[in-house]
Design a binder for these strands. Structure first.
Lengths: 343, 343
DNA sequence: TTGAAAGCGATACCAG
DNA sequence: CTGGTATCGCTTTCAA
């Protein structure tokens, strides 16, 4: 791995000239020196030493993806195909732009930011940040920062976020169920006091229920299960015994849980959708890998990743951002887990 | 973010002394200077600048995970929970050791190695490297390098690898099926000429078939389907019509495909395990998320990740490695996808 | 149009 | 025991 100095020597020019060629400061340069240096650069297989770059305060070409798992800390979290698809798509975008991706699961905002400083990171993509943590990040760094799927407590209009029409998704679910003749519907979540995407999905759902004057009480028809597999499945079994008779349809904020319920119900002889309809959210691999296949709301994770990186690049290049909070469209995908009720 | 020089100034010592404190060269140092510097380091929240470190040829604290997708390039690859579990576990280990992880999906070995040089990477973990590519890596770098799940074409004894008792896994499958009274068994793969883990799994399977003198011809009883979802499912449906009657059990080299077959068969009214038994491999989330749940061979991905990082650290610290090719144990997990046949 | 030199932050050697 | 100084590779400013 040759250095700039060595290249310069071979080319018979000074290191500055080589540096200029590399960095494209090439407007007032004689074409033949340019050509000569470029040729040697290529032929010697020059790779710029990142240590030098960093130190000289040139860009580090480093983007860090910070993932903060708030719950589902167990294997679930990491086995969730949403994460791997996101990571994969992000990495690809970043690499194709000539950047490198550091993956960092955050224990604390402070720690994350220390490492951002240490590495002179050019941009941060933050996934799974809790609303109350966002401002910690914003206050303590001026590095370009893009949130993914985040809803903010306050001052959110200053943050750049790539999210989803979560509320609309919830509405789609409710509209579809009502259209299919369902009138007694429950919503199940893994969090007593939902926030972020789950809260929005629920909100949209409730909006439509209200609009159509269908009975739904967030006290009686909203149920909370555990994110831990064993407890969750026990809960579903219990639910089947004690509450299921009250409903014709059950809604979930993710396919992961919806698929789990379908399986658990099957194990105890509850037929989906004959005895109860189930609706998921995300349209990830679990939706089509489950039988019956889930009716669900589709989101395009790869698109989300691409947009996040593009937005970040705009910030890095100091371009103005017209749309700070992007909400990608959602779409209802009708499959087999919802039964049409007799009117 | 203060620099060493600034810390030195505040402490009233020289930069060298501060550096010595940071790097633990502290044996011949007066305890009070040590204490003083340490205090200021903490109070000023010192974070060492990685550019400086890199340039001074101190460790970069960088580990790169290179993932080479050979096939299943589509969403499957990246949605495969194996990858996310591996990535997650690797990141955690690496971070806890005070290192940082760069994630890089490789287009070519050369490109990967250029970036390894540029960043002064301390260690490489290589997942999914095809046998014929391994030596490219080995020949062109002296950076510590650990392979995951790799079988080598030749000279493999020089490589450090963390793998699985794949062959034993194949044996377990065959033994179990035979024990359950199956005599007509097919093996299905997504590759005409399997290599790596798939080849070993198949080999182990065939060994046992031969040992028990049960008919299995790699010409007639070995089937190749496509890794593309649509084509694959079409293939399975066709298979059900034309070949299924010849077998009582079907073996796969991954839960991903086994679960897919279970679902596809269900769609066309083929009952698993009543009409045919199915066996998977990996015991990942698809195995227990599928109905009937899959009988399969368990591997511990997290353990694999931990071992890989530990082995890499040994190499980085120049410690001798007693075991170059580690094969983690496998275990048969009996669930519901294999029927006991009448003898 | 090109080059010399300073400086970025951390380390290590050697002198005191 | 501590500090001065050269060094790593690259960028940038300014002078020629």
């Amino acid at each position: 791995m040759p250095t700039i100095k060595e290249i310069a020597e071979i080319a018979g020019v000074s290191p500055s000239t080589v540096s200029n060629v590399i960095n494209g400061h090439t407007n007032k340069m004689r074409p033949d020196t340019l050509a000569k240096v470029q040729k040697i650069l290529k032929q010697e297989n020059y790779v710029s030493n990142m240590g030098g770059r960093l130190l000289a305060k040139n860009g580090s070409r480093l983007i860090v993806l910070i993932m903060t798992y708030t719950r589902r800390e167990e294997k679930n979290a990491v086995q969730d195909p949403f994460f791997s698809e996101l990571i994969g798509a992000l990495e690809q975008e970043i690499r194709e732009l000539g950047y490198f991706m550091i993956l960092y699961t955050s224990s604390s905002a402070e720690e994350s930011l220390r490492m951002v400083d240490a590495w002179n990171v050019e941009g941060i993509i933050l996934q799974g940040c809790a609303p109350w943590d966002c401002s910690t990040y914003m206050k303590n760094t001026h590095i370009p920062l893009v949130f993914i799927d985040t809803y903010f407590e306050e001052g959110g209009e200053k943050f750049i976020n790539i999210g989803l029409e979560d509320k609309r998704g919830g509405e789609l679910v409710a509209e579809h169920l009502i259209e299919q003749g369902h009138k007694r519907i429950a919503f199940l979540l893994d969090e007593q006091y939902p926030f972020g995407v789950d809260a929005e999905r629920l909100k949209g759902f409730m909006n439509i229920m209200k609009k159509h004057e269908i009975q739904f009480s967030s006290k009686d028809d909203f149920y909370v299960f555990s994110y831990r597999k064993k407890e969750r499945e026990a809960y579903f079994k219990e639910f089947a015994k004690t509450h299921l008779h009250k409903y014709t349809a059950l809604c979930f904020a993710s396919d992961f849980y919806a698929a789990d319920v379908v399986n658990t119900f099957r194990d105890i002889g509850v037929d989906v959708p004959e005895q109860v309809s189930i609706c998921g959210f995300d349209d990830n691999i679990f939706a089509s890998t489950c039988r019956p296949m889930l009716t669900t709301v589709r989101q395009d994770v790869t698109e989300k990743a691409k947009l996040a990186v593009n937005r970040l690049m705009q910030m890095i290049r100091n371009e103005p951002i017209e749309e700070k909070d992007t909400k990608l469209p959602v779409e209802l995908v009708v499959r087999d887990s919802i039964k049409r009720m007799k009117q």
